[in-house]
Design a protein around this nucleic acid. Structure first.
Lengths: 372, 372
DNA sequence: ATGAAAGCGCTAACAA
DNA sequence: TTGTTAGCGCTTTCAT
């Protein structure tokens, strides 16, 4: 019930019979082993342990002019939390990676009424005096520049703005998607549909390009209406709508590749409603691999290495923070590979589904790309 | 590219032609309107806006002896993030609620190798000098006492330790579960199974008790083998196993109530595997209602009011922090109701499923409770 | 109505 | 090898 004031370094000093500064040197000084005699060191350590001493973060931050905090600005997403599992994973992994290096993660994504718009969010972090900022898919280049121009270290992940020179950590969709196509072709599929997103974002484009390249390499001719793109964002309801369109085609595909977990979830809904069994009547592969393992059946999926992305990004950021010698001439660009996790949503096509008939046309040709 | 040092209150003072103390009074003093002349106030405000001034959090914390941070110790959970969607929701909602009141949430759940065991996590928060701690289902009473004995405000939510006197915010399962049973009975179900968890935790007990009370009130006699409890924690694989047991019974139930979303997810897996269509051949209701809306079909579910829990809990905590006049004699206990969200996993039982035949025995009797 | 001054707990430069 | 000192930016008496 007492309110035992937390011990300060002065308390430790008194108990150890040394000066307060000595305590500081022993407990946090870089050169403590050189500077301080062994006997003194031991006495200080013992006193600190005895009193349960821990340095006061605010005092330390004030003096060092470093908060020990890293700002995280997640990608803006609308909708329910579980429509955006990626955010949860990134949040957890970046927080952990930061903690492992002695930093605390301050996230600007939890919007409150007082904080609207990206400028306000950046300002929020700057006002918190974070030592650096991690951007996941910044809304604008200006937003990143505001941070960089302040002299604050910044790193961009997953969907970087190419027009701002910061280190980046991104993911290469190609290896995982190639493996996915190989897997499907190996099972006997030739009529494979793609559910994705149109638009200029390189990341979304890359998924389609990887699909196109992988199918072409395996000699599949994918008809244009097997490639269905939505104009809006990834979202469950879009996945459902696109899948309904696929099912309405005269020649159904035997497998669907969805360029995001939420599209795959929507596809699963549509297939369930239409009583098309997965994987017996339709194979389904998703990209992201966050929710996918929890569906029934658990989906075969192309996994993004979120933990590794977070770790590398935090490492790059901390390096910038702790290396005082200006920014490197050429900011580092880390690219991490995707990989395939085979689960239970893929199987050979049903006997009646003659893939060769379905696809038709010249084999080995490049799949047509639709307008939308 | 310049590194424009963030403006300090001294900068603002210089520009406004007043003393630094006056700036502080104007910008953060409680009695600023009384003390300072209008003309001075305006000049200070203008200068502050002009320089983009924001107070330095560390300096303020150091001086005020309050960090402005609230610690959050989530319930320990093993497994993948998406086996524990509740954590995500609580995390988001508490962070937002804290922010709305000017506090920052520091979460101790993101375990790093350096932090193992609850004592270390509590210590982590104390060392961070949080102004109060929010506990979700503390592992031990000692853990809470360590915080309380330090004179730190504490609040427990969802699964409080009754043996420590802190304010609590909990959820009453009964209204939602009663509504769920009424809904099922209204559809014509009489053979309703319960998937839950055994053990001494009041919260888990309460769900079963609410189910038993609600079915009894509607005159249903639930046979003992319709009530299936796992000894371990809630988990997808348990839900699947229990559901397989149900499906193996000579007289299958026509509806399943799962006492958590993860159990429901497991049940959905098992039903899918057994080709038992939901809701045509089996109705399914879950408790928690986090993942449930995203399944196919979206599950009818009993929703816990997580946002409200977070808001009330933060309010109680902040009240304690900002009211200096000791702890109230009787800590406040807030109880919030659950409610039913009807979706598409519930429907009348199929024609062949004669509930009355299935249940048998005396009607109106209380359902037997199994050993396990 | 305003300013001067002290001090929160710490680190880092300098003295001894 | 250790101690002394200054000061990070702010809030809060206490004078004026």
């Amino acid at each position: 019930m007492a309110r035992p004031r937390q011990a300060t370094s002065t308390d430790v000093a008194r108990q150890a019979g040394v000066s307060q500064a000595t305590v500081s040197v022993v407990l946090s000084g870089v050169r403590s082993n050189i500077r301080v005699s062994d006997a003194t060191r031991r006495r200080v350590l013992a006193a600190a342990a005895d009193l349960g001493y821990a340095p006061h973060p605010a005092a330390r931050a004030l003096r060092q002019r470093r908060s020990g905090a890293i700002g995280f600005l997640p990608r803006p997403e609308r909708g329910l939390p579980f429509e955006h599992p990626i955010h949860y994973l990134l949040s957890i992994h970046t927080a952990r990676a930061a903690l492992d290096r002695g930093y605390q993660l301050v996230e600007a994504g939890v919007e409150t009424d007082a904080l609207r718009g990206s400028d306000a969010l950046v300002q929020f972090l700057v006002n918190r005096r974070v030592d650096g900022v991690l951007f996941d898919g910044p809304r604008t280049a200006a937003e990143v520049r505001r941070v960089v121009d302040r002299g604050l270290p910044a790193v961009q992940i997953l969907r970087p703005r190419p027009d701002v020179a910061t280190p980046t950590v991104t993911v290469d969709a190609a290896p995982g998607i190639a493996a996915a196509i190989d897997h499907l072709v190996g099972l006997g599929h030739r009529a494979i549909a793609f559910l994705g997103k149109s638009g200029a974002a390189p990341v979304d484009r890359a998924r389609l390009d990887a699909f196109t390249a992988a199918t072409a390499r395996r000699g599949l001719a994918i008809p244009g209406d097997y490639i269905r793109l939505i104009a809006g964002d990834y979202g469950l309801e879009h996945g459902r709508a696109l899948t309904r369109e696929l099912l309405a085609l005269p020649e159904r595909p035997t497998a669907i590749f969805a360029a995001s977990d939420s599209l795959a979830l929507g596809a699963a809904h549509a297939l369930y409603e239409a009583e098309v069994r997965v994987p017996a009547a339709m194979s389904l592969i998703s990209y992201d691999d966050t929710l996918a393992p929890q569906l029934y059946p658990p989906l075969t999926g192309v996994a993004q290495p979120f933990a590794a992305v977070a770790e590398r990004a935090i490492a790059l950021l901390v390096d910038q923070i702790e290396r005082s010698d200006g920014p490197a001439a050429e900011p580092e660009r880390v690219v991490l590979p995707t990989r395939l996790n085979v689960r239970r949503s893929t199987a050979p096509p049903a006997a009646g589904q003659a893939s060769d008939d379905v696809v038709g046309g010249a084999r080995g040709g490049q799949g047509a790309r639709p307008m939308a």
